[in-house]
């Protein structure tokens, strides 16, 4: 088990190292590495400013952002599936992504502020607002029952997407809808050092909380009564995990838009290798999520260069066939 995690961690480092060398701009391997060692203070070679920027301001933050978002979505998805005992659960189940979309659409279309900061802020505010409404709608004396949370999440998601459509059709110019579609399909082009700076500690904190509750998560698989009998404070743990993962998802959506598939499918794929024990599953799914999204985003950047695709389109296009293959090859045991 430790070996698997070590291999995956090595794979993640290699993936980052390899992905920064790939891109539409034709930079040699040595240039890319000189830039990085320059910034780490190891070398002080002369690299033209724009090439330096391509590597250090465009590619590296984006690759690290892909790793972060992939890791976060995979972890949130795994937790969400266990807590709600619903194999179809994903990080967006609680209305977070639709809320974020509504927030982003409001910024893009109604012109509430301009620039990327406003977009990120709008998406984050929308995500939090939607989640708050879901909790308020589903909560009963501070207890969140899984079925009610899921139903409330679906209902609020429908409401938010209806409102977003309304805003687009009512206020947007047809030409403006293009940029909205691009945003809604998910893109890591906005990942920069600032975003990484505040998202990384949050991811680490949430991941620590989740890992701390790995045993409790295992007991959830047997149902609430069993979990309670094993000494788990079901209500408190569920509340804590739902809120922290929703917060993290809100941050991720604000950075990258709603990237589908990763949070839904990767936990299932990882479970096929690790079994249901969350102490094994969580580290694996986080690393796998990071590696997966790095490579899918690299494909989105370069497959049709100099065109660029929204990464959310590719996660499903590449991920679903891989997942179907996995389902068929290892069929029968889940």
């Amino acid at each position: 088990m430790v070996a698997v995690v070590v291999v995956l961690a090595g794979g993640l480092v290699l993936s980052v190292a390899a992905a920064v060398t790939v891109g539409p701009a034709d930079l040699s391997l040595s240039t890319v590495w000189l830039v990085i060692t320059n910034h780490l203070g190891l070398t002080s070679a002369d690299v033209p400013l724009l090439r330096d920027h391509i590597v250090w301001e465009l590619r590296l933050p984006r690759v690290l952002g892909a790793a972060l978002v992939g890791a976060g979505l995979a972890a949130c998805g795994a937790v969400m599936q266990t807590v709600t005992r619903n194999p179809l659960a994903d990080p967006y189940l609680l209305g977070v992504s639709s809320g974020a979309s509504l927030g982003a659409v409001a910024v893009l279309v109604l012109g509430l502020g301009t620039g990327t900061a406003a977009l990120t802020g709008g998406a984050f505010a929308g995500a939090l607002a939607a989640f708050a409404v879901v909790v308020a709608a589903a909560g009963h004396r501070a207890v969140l029952r899984p079925t009610r949370v899921v139903l409330a999440g679906v209902a609020i998601a429908q409401l938010c997407s209806a409102l977003a459509s309304f805003v687009i059709i009512w206020a947007a110019d047809p030409h403006a809808t293009h940029s909205i579609t691009f945003w809604l399909s998910g893109s890591l082009a906005r990942a920069d050092w600032a975003a990484l700076g505040w998202a990384t500690p949050l991811l680490a904190a949430v991941f620590a909380v989740i890992l701390w509750h790995a045993r409790a998560l295992n007991t959830f698989a047997f149902g609430e009564e069993a979990a309670a009998a094993l000494g788990v404070d079901v209500g408190r743990v569920r509340w804590l995990l739902l809120v922290t993962t929703a917060l993290l998802t809100a941050v991720l959506v604000a950075i990258s838009g709603a990237i589908g598939f990763v949070g839904l499918m990767l936990p299932h794929a990882a479970r096929r290798f690790t079994g249901p024990d969350h102490r094994r599953l969580l580290p694996v799914v986080v690393l796998a999520g990071a590696i997966f999204l790095i490579w899918v985003d690299t494909a989105a950047r370069t497959l049709f260069e100099p065109r660029e695709l929204p990464v959310g389109v590719l996660t499903a296009l590449l991920g679903v066939p891989a997942f179907v293959l996995l389902l068929r090859r290892r069929g029968g045991n889940a």
Binding site: D26, L58, A189, R301
Partner: peptide
Amino acid sequence: WADTSWETVVE
């Protein structure tokens, strides 16, 4: 029109 990337623009 086509969606492209800033990296290509810089290059």
